[in-house]
């Protein structure tokens, strides 16, 4: 069958009565309404907000290092007290963990924790 065999007619669709009389008013009403924002626009706004919040979070962490140091020292002291660990024991642990390989590096004050007063007197005479 050829297309020319069909009489050319505009398709006949049903349209509500007075539709075209009312259409300009409907359009004008829509124009006066604030424009709707699309979903993609809202997603873009949400992404910007998320980035901003992330930025604030990272900035806060970065500039709050001093407080963190203080906090970490305080925490160490608390742990030592709770577990009844003396500073001497902590130093010993420190040397054992091969931080200081050469014994000559150990200063006199550090040795005091290990040597009693009598031993010092004996060494002096």
């Amino acid at each position: 069958m050829k297309l020319e065999d069909i009489p050319k007619k505009q398709p006949v669709f049903d349209i509500p009565e007075d539709y075209f009389e009312n259409l300009p008013h409907k359009v004008m009403r829509r124009i006066k309404q604030p424009r709707r924002r699309s979903l993609s626009m809202w997603l873009a706004y949400a992404a910007c907000l998320a980035l901003l919040l992330m930025g604030i979070g990272i900035g806060y962490d970065h500039f709050d290092v001093e407080n963190d140091k203080l906090g970490s020292w305080q925490t160490i002291e608390e742990v030592l007290l709770e577990n009844d660990i003396s500073e001497a024991e902590l130093l010993e642990l420190h040397y054992m963990s091969e931080t200081i390989q050469d014994p000559s590096e150990i200063v006199f004050e550090e040795l005091l924790y290990e040597v009693s007063e009598e031993e010092i007197m004996e060494l002096a005479y």
Binding site: Q10, F13, D14, I15, P16, F20, L23, K26, V27
Partner: peptide
């Protein structure tokens, strides 16, 4: 609008078939 609304509506209606869709798109 008076000049073009019918032609634009009919062009859209032929594509989307449904009146409500064509009405929304024409607006």
């Amino acid at each position: 609008m008076n000049k073009y609304q019918k032609r634009i509506y009919m062009h859209i209606r032929k594509m989307v078939i449904d009146h409500d869709d064509a009405d929304d798109l024409t607006q």
